[in-house]
Design a protein around this nucleic acid. Sequence first.
DNA 1: TATTGTTATACTCTATAACTATA
DNA 2: TATAGTTATAGAGTATAACAATA
Lengths: 153, 153
Amino acid sequence: MHTPLLLDRLLQIADLLHRDMSREYEGTELSPSRMAVLWTIHHAGPVQQHTIAEALDVTPRAITGLVDALEAAGYVERVPDPADRRARRVVLTSDGVALMTRTVQEHAGLNATLMAAVPEADRECVEMAIAAIADRLAELVSEAATAAGTDAS
Amino acid sequence: MHTPLLLDRLLQIADLLHRDMSREYEGTELSPSRMAVLWTIHHAGPVQQHTIAEALDVTPRAITGLVDALEAAGYVERVPDPADRRARRVVLTSDGVALMTRTVQEHAGLNATLMAAVPEADRECVEMAIAAIADRLAELVSEAATAAGTDAS
DNA sequence: TATTGTTATACTCTATAACTATA
DNA sequence: TATAGTTATAGAGTATAACAATA
């Protein structure tokens, strides 16, 4: 048995994060996909649905369903867009803002717990390295998607 | 805009890896879930389906569907279990073995590409740190799952 | 004409529950 | 009685396609 590759560790972490989030939200009106919509609105402010669709790289149809669910649960509201009567802006309700505030705090707490597993002297180096890996991976995925899109057209 | 947390970077990497895998397999008989089944068999050898279900933390019913698809695609075969006539062992076909051999090589290649984004002097430290973070996260998720299970019972 | 978002429909993945065959 | 796996059914998430309202 040899040491797992860094990539294997990253895949393990990906699986654990997704599993933990799914478990955390089970029995509630939330889910990883719905949280992704809330993060987009949290970061971008009131947005049109097609903007969310582009940010998450899914079709507008998928956003219709996710926003329907979030609106029914009381976390977001569809409001008229004064500049375009076809569109509506999706905004966080006060419940939505409170949820995201709590979630940001929980993220910071989990981040601190995980960083505590790394020797203090190594932390800056590790943060830089993971950022570099994430950026490199984003480039690769973007190139692969472009190549696939070119093939298909 | 402050520097993203390490956790945010890990979530970004998780999303990119899943997205890239989904794109890579689109239009084929494969998918991330089906690949997870193949990885389990690749590592454990011929296994009963309930063993795969436990390894992936899904219900046996889900495995029935995934193995059905993989068998139809020619990557695995269900063979009788000589020790238990209720069960069948799932084994890789020669196509399945060839696929996993290719995939292991592709993983090693991607791993090397990503590690190239990290200064050579930092690599060992980063590998150790990510392993420590993965182990810590696995503990946390396991504890949370146990706590949730205890609550429910 | 192009864009925004919806309804209609279908597929994958997953869960629970009821059932068969075997242990 | 318990276990291995299946069928039946349901729900979430996503895709394509056709359509409405507006730009």
